[in-house]
Simulated scan of single mutants.
Amino acid sequence: MNDLLNVSASPHVRSKDSTSSIMRDVAIALLPATAFGIYNFGVKALFVVLTAIISCVLTEYVYQKLMKKSITINDYSAVVTGLLLGLNLPSTLPLWIAFLGGVFAILIVKQLFGGLGQNFMNPALGARCFLLISFAGRMTSFTYDGVTGATPLAVLKEGDKAASVVSVLSASGTSISDMFFGTIAGTIGETSVIAILLGAVYLLVKKIINWKIPFIYIGTFAVFVVLFGGKGLDMNYLAAQLCGGGLMLGAFFMATDYVTSPITPMGQIAYGILLGCFTGIFRMFGASAEGVSYAIIFCNLLVPLIEKFTIPVPFGREGLKDGK
């Protein structure tokens, strides 16, 4: 009888999924966006992505070797960090800056805070924001089809507010359909919505990510754009905002990061709403046309507070008493 009452240490619920299998699935899901980015921007995009991956894996290996820790590069987490970082960089970025970004992502954001599971923000986005602050000119210089110019979101933000979205985009040589398929200027992996959605479907089918965070994030942002975008229910403007920038890539591949997103059901809802609101604030009222990276990082910092207030009340005598 006593044996039946023994309670083992947590976790009590186990899954066949491992860190390496999850990271491998995320890497597979990113392949469509990666392949399109290389097709769209050429071989230089491949070199930027490979440099970011090599930098992340090498930094993790060297740090753990020097600190006499277990080597964890086989769990693919450093590969995914490098891949996400590379997809968030312009194809024209010098390789040494991409390498520096990988070092920052792994060493500063991840390893110095305890390694995988202990980082307080998404390492790839932390590195991207670091590079944006340090090398603003190079990080915001985009070239497509041999021509250097602004992204469609930047064109919309700086364009004639009274003019239609279609005319503003047409004047810059692009369209909403171009934004959906990805034949536009931008970072390597953010331009093609359809390629990103293919990867997102893979993650959802494999149950690697939960639908709540990305769909609530995108839905909240859409409502924010309608209410505060200054265009009302202009479907062209809404479509441009949804297809432009890093919204789709961020919503499905970075906002859903296990370590830096809430695990409570209500927390995931609150997190998604906050992401949508902050992205809307940064895009509509900020100086930059983009805002996804900063919104996700800011909400990463709020996750402990979100979880504190959304922990389910335990059922039984240790729960609420007398309505208190």
Rank of each mutant, 00 (worst) to 15 (best):
G137C: 05
G199K: 04
S18P: 00
G267W: 07
S20Q: 07
I218V: 15
G319E: 05
V103N: 09
R283H: 07
S20L: 06
C299T: 15
M139C: 12
R283D: 05
S141I: 05
Y76C: 13
S192W: 03
N236W: 09
K69L: 15
A127I: 01
S18G: 08
V223Y: 09
E190S: 05
Y144A: 00
F113D: 04
Y61T: 02
G137H: 08
D322M: 06
Y294Q: 12
M23T: 04
I216S: 10
F99Y: 12
L85C: 10
L66W: 12
I208Y: 06
N236C: 10
K69C: 11
L203I: 08
E290C: 09
V43C: 10
S70A: 14
K110H: 09
K206R: 15
D145T: 01
R24V: 05
G280Q: 06
T191E: 01
L100P: 02
T191G: 04
N40V: 01
G186E: 00
W96Q: 12
L132S: 08
V109L: 04
A270W: 12
A163H: 04
G159I: 03
Q111S: 03
G323A: 05
G101E: 09
A98L: 13
D25K: 12
V57C: 01
I213Q: 14
A295V: 03
L249C: 09
A185H: 00
I209P: 15
L247F: 02
N74D: 15
Y63S: 00
D145M: 07
R14L: 12
M254A: 12
L238T: 08
F315R: 15
G230W: 15
V292K: 01
F130L: 07
V13Q: 05
E190C: 03
G272C: 12
I216C: 11
A52G: 13
L249S: 08
G117C: 08
T187W: 00
L100W: 01
G126M: 13
